[in-house]
Write a protein that binds this DNA or RNA. Structure first.
Lengths: 173, 173
DNA sequence: CTTAAATTTCAGTAATTACTGAAATAACTG
DNA sequence: CAGTTATTTCAGTAATTACTGAAATTTAAG
């Protein structure tokens, strides 16, 4: 897997963005490489292309599989694992958002629910603070519920709605 | 500013989430504290409450101001700066998303545009890769444009639309 | 079952990022 | 303007996170 300058640029940029979103550079680079690659790659291919340690590739691939962004395939007569990334960009996005919702939003919601419950028999926390916790909880719950509904729509519907842009507002005005 | 257990829990949780989104713990904790706090706080108040170095508070506050999430106020007869966070949760969210779009999405779009242009007089990059770059560019541009339109809607409209959930789909079906 | 290839684990280390504290600067007061 | 308080800067260090390489494990072929 020889990288052309264009591919290299995409992969490096992806790696740089990773840090800003709390993702390790290797994971992001491997994901970018597999996303661009026309064919599935072996772990060794990745080592050769990105020049990172074999063990790092192994761990990063496991993480990408944990995110459900990468899967394993096999080639007849070859016992090595071949890795491929989801290619449908829309799916890539929803998969990532679903994952972050589950790993970060849901636990935060749980925490806020507990805090809100706790706040009821808690006389020391100022009323204003309690209200803010409550409104935060309500807000995230509402957004979360909205996301679940949108997520369940058939994609063509969603696409049409998206392409309407702000014209959907005519419905409610 | 004495923290009650409930407040402490919120602040600590916020700090823990921060790392996963590429934000430093101190910045997140300070933001959480100011968000919860009924009244504006001085830098020293924050030092006392969160037990972090004065200099760290200073730098973190600058960052939060850079994100437009925190602003300075003053108290008559007191020359210290008092800091307050945006309290409207909806605004907090849009401010953060706007910021991340500007800092991360826009540069990525620029990179993709350049790659797509570059790809035209580039014979070595495989056609499939070029297509993937192009489709990615198109996808992010579309999403980005959609966000701008939604962002420009009046908030009551947006709220109504949101509360309709998947019922908006009736428009296009 | 033995051997070899592929993969994973994990302790140690490197790289990065976050934080501190001392010193400098800025902003005000009398 | 000298003195005081508030704030910022930044070099050094601590803490965290990412990565490597050697060893162990798994998997399959002969």
């Amino acid at each position: 897997m020889q990288l052309t300058p264009t591919m290299q640029r995409c992969i490096l940029h992806w790696g740089e963005m990773a840090g800003r979103w709390g993702i390790s550079r290797s994971v992001a680079q491997i994901h970018a490489l597999l996303f661009l690659s026309p064919a599935p790659l072996t772990a060794e291919d990745i080592v050769g292309t990105l020049e990172i340690a074999r063990s790092n590739v192994s761990v990063s691939l496991k993480e990408l599989q944990g995110w459900d962004l990468v899967s394993i395939t096999h080639v007849l007569g070859d016992r090595r694992d071949y890795f491929q990334a989801r290619k449908d960009i829309w799916e890539v996005l929803t998969t990532i958002v679903d994952g972050r919702k589950r790993r970060e939003i849901d636990p935060t919601l749980a925490m806020l629910r507990e805090c809100a419950a706790e706040a009821k028999q808690d006389s020391e926390t100022p009323t204003e603070v309690k209200e803010r916790v409550a409104s935060m909880l309500e807000f995230i719950e509402e957004l979360s519920g909205w996301y679940d509904q949108v997520r369940a729509m058939p994609r063509p519907t969603l696409l049409k709605l998206m392409r309407m842009g702000s014209r959907v507002a005519k419905m409610v005005s």
